[in-house]
Design a protein around this nucleic acid. Sequence first.
DNA 1: CACTGAATAGTCACAAATGACTATTCATGA
DNA 2: TCATGAATAGTCATTTGTGACTATTCAGTG
Lengths: 188, 188
Amino acid sequence: MERELLLLGLLRQGEMHGYQLHDFIERNLAFCTDLKKPTAYALLERMAARGWVTVQEVREGHRPPRRVYRLTSEGEAVFQRLLRDNLARFEAAKTGSDVGLAFVDALPRAEALRLLEQRRAALTEQLAAFQSAPTHAGSYQLLIDHQLHYLRSELAWLDDVLARMRAGRLRLVSPRSTPKPKSKEASP
Amino acid sequence: MERELLLLGLLRQGEMHGYQLHDFIERNLAFCTDLKKPTAYALLERMAARGWVTVQEVREGHRPPRRVYRLTSEGEAVFQRLLRDNLARFEAAKTGSDVGLAFVDALPRAEALRLLEQRRAALTEQLAAFQSAPTHAGSYQLLIDHQLHYLRSELAWLDDVLARMRAGRLRLVSPRSTPKPKSKEASP
DNA sequence: CACTGAATAGTCACAAATGACTATTCATGA
DNA sequence: TCATGAATAGTCATTTGTGACTATTCAGTG
């Protein structure tokens, strides 16, 4: 749902064609959403079919005609609905990076430390890149602010974990406990 | 990739069948990954095809036979590789909730405030539920710790935003700036 | 001016993910 | 004891999402 919210929101600022929309998202919003080109086109097509946007084929030269999308008033209504809905909810973010943490105890402490320090380096690098970005096209300040807050918070947590690990204060359960020891199933 | 890491990691603790794996993830790790049943089965099948796990059909009664998966030593090697790789990277989390923030200025300030207060309520509720959970099966402490940290950090940020909005100190750019004012295209 | 690499614009066949099922077993209480 | 709903176990048709591709235009340069 939030992908259509995004597209509708961008189209509120004026008509645009598919490539333009995707390109803008890719350049400016890649850090908070990821929307590949074919997905964007498919969504636009569907939104057109539902009457949220109109399409107008524009051909210049003899390149394949560009399809220019424009928000309808119905689309605007949907935008309003989706926006209210989105703002009122909180959906926790998910990342693949979490999974590994579940299994750190499968590695010797020293190596785990080394790897997490690499992770920390990657994180500070992203943070730096983000901070030095040129006011990000001047727009979407809240998003940027949020992302900065998030990255800093992640860094703080990671540093805390590293400190605890170095001090040997990381309590981890025995890796032998079967996740669901319901019936017979002796631990192998 | 992190889904196979997860499955392999769980299988390290002993053989399990598909339902068991999915069920465990659903119950205990839903907050950090989401893996529907058919996806889990498909992954297991593929891992079997690649020799990372072995399958053994076990039938009891005359229900459809259960397929029990067991990690191979090749699977263990892959696990080690994926784990190291995962720990060394940092991948920023993404959430659909961010998108709405890009468009708060489309709403009257008062209403935006009301909606974000609803969001805040949803967040504190999730936080409360998480804190009161019964030591989460005693396992995966780092994950829990991380999630708690994350939720608290989100709450702090949201409170800050709310405060800024109430004080009218939320600087937002004019909604009229076209995202990519490259060529002709007069703002409509 | 012809050539090259980048930017523009979009498509398509394939891979991944999921909602909605089927079908058996188990607990329970009327 | 036998209906009923929950838990167990898995499948399949459909939708979604994407890597890799085609094809045109444009800017720069030798």
